[in-house]
C-alpha cells in the first residue's frame, strides 16, 4: 500500500468557520441550552465537543455548557472480531443525563457502529429526553447501521480504500489542525 493524494477537507481556515456554523445551528435549535448536555465520543469526538463548547461559552456567552466524555469501547459489537482487544479510554460524565437533551459529538461518521455503541454506553447514565448527533465529517453512503447525523460539518463521498484523517492540536504531537482525505492505492 502506498499513500498518495491528500485532499484537505477544510482548506485555509475553513475549519473555524465550519465549527462556528455548527455552533450557530445548535443555538438555533437549543436557544439558552437549558437541559442540554454534550457528550464527546472518545477520543477525537471529545476534542470537537470541547471546541464547540468553547465557542458557545466564550464567543457566544452561553454558559455553563455541560460536557462529558464517553467511551464506547466495551459496547462495541466488533470487539472480538479484531486481532487485539480494543484499548479502552476514559469515560467522564459528572452529571445525570436523565431527561436531558443530549448532543453526541464525533469527528468522523463512517459505518455508524461507534455511534450505535455510544448510544448503548450512554444509557448507563440515564434515559435522555432526546439524542442528536453532531459530526465534523460525514462519510456518506458507507453506513452499516441506520444512523444519521443531525449536524454535519462536511459531507464527503468516499470509497472504502479512502480514509479521513483528523489531526487536531489537542492531540499529542499534532502542531496544526488538519482534516484530510487519504487515498490509498495498491502498488
Amino acid at each position: 500500500m502506498k499513500e498518495e493524494n491528500q485532499l484537505d477537507l477544510f482548506p485555509s481556515g475553513k475549519l473555524h468557520i465550519t465549527l462556528n456554523r455548527l455552533a450557530q445551528q445548535l443555538i438555533e435549535r437549543y436557544g439558552k441550552f437549558e437541559d442540554v448536555v454534550f457528550l464527546g465520543i472518545q477520543t477525537k469526538g471529545v476534542f470537537v465537543a470541547k471546541r464547540i463548547a468553547f465557542l458557545l461559552e466564550d464567543s457566544l456567552q452561553i454558559s455553563p455548557i455541560h460536557l462529558g466524555e464517553l467511551d464506547a469501547t466495551f459496547f462495541r459489537d466488533d470487539f472480538r472480531k479484531r486481532s487485539a482487544p480494543l484499548q479502552p479510554n476514559r469515560t467522564k460524565i459528572d452529571f445525570l443525563i436523565e431527561d436531558k437533551k443530549v448532543v453526541l459529538v464525533d469527528d468522523v461518521l463512517y459505518s455508524g457502529r461507534t455511534v450505535r455503541a455510544a448510544l448503548d454506553a450512554m444509557l448507563a447514565y440515564g434515559r435522555p429526553e432526546s439524542v442528536e448527533l453532531l459530526v465534523l465529517v460525514d462519510r456518506q453512503h458507507q453506513r452499516e447501521v441506520p444512523i444519521q447525523p443531525s449536524y454535519v460539518g462536511s459531507n464527503v463521498d468516499t470509497i472504502e480504500t479512502q480514509w479521513v484523517m483528523v489531526d487536531l492540536v489537542e492531540e499529542e504531537g499534532v502542531v496544526e489542525d488538519k482534516v484530510y482525505l487519504l487515498s490509498k492505492s495498491q502498488e
Binding site: F74, F75, P88, T91
Partner: peptide, 22 residues
C-alpha cells in the same frame, strides 16, 4: 491500566457492559 477503566464502570449507576456477551 485496563482495570482503571473497569473501576470506573463499577462506579456507574449501571455497572454492566456487554463486552463478553458471547
Amino acid at each position: 491500566e485496563t482495570a482503571d477503566n473497569f473501576k470506573e464502570v463499577l462506579n456507574r449507576p449501571i455497572k454492566k457492559v456487554p463486552s463478553l456477551r458471547d
